[in-house]
């Protein structure tokens, strides 16, 4: 399974990371290096083995339906790059 330049571009797009064209090919090589190394796992017989879903053996914690949080819009805006009237403001999104 070899990663080519187009795959790198597609994955970078999915991950929303701008990659300058000059970085695409080197990145493809780096990713291939890692993936080739990882390919040794194909030798492991995993037939009938369930995937690990959690390392903790416990029941999923559940909380009661109570309103116990919120009410601090001002605090939420403190680190915002751009905010107005307690809204987060972003470049216009076209639907």
């Amino acid at each position: 399974m070899s990663v080519d330049a187009d795959t790198v571009r597609r994955v970078a797009k999915l991950a929303r990371i701008a990659l300058e064209e000059g970085r695409v090919q080197p990145m493809a090589e780096e990713l291939n290096g890692i993936l080739t190394w990882v390919e040794q796992l194909n030798a492991v017989d995993v037939a009938g083995v369930p995937p690990m879903t959690s390392v903790v053996k416990a029941d999923l914690k559940r909380r009661a339906d109570r309103v116990s949080d919120g009410g601090y819009a001002e605090d939420l805006m403190k680190n915002a790059p751009l905010a107005e009237d307690h809204f987060f403001v972003v470049p216009k999104v076209v639907e």
């Binding site: 990882v38 796992l41 194909n42 492991v44 995993v46 083995v49 369930p50 995937p51 690990m52 390392v55």
Partner: peptide, 13 residues
């Protein structure tokens, strides 16, 4: 990749 790795995790555990 991911599913196989999680199965190997089970084997390791």
């Amino acid at each position: 990749y991911y599913l196989r790795a999680q199965k190997i995790r089970t084997l390791i555990a």
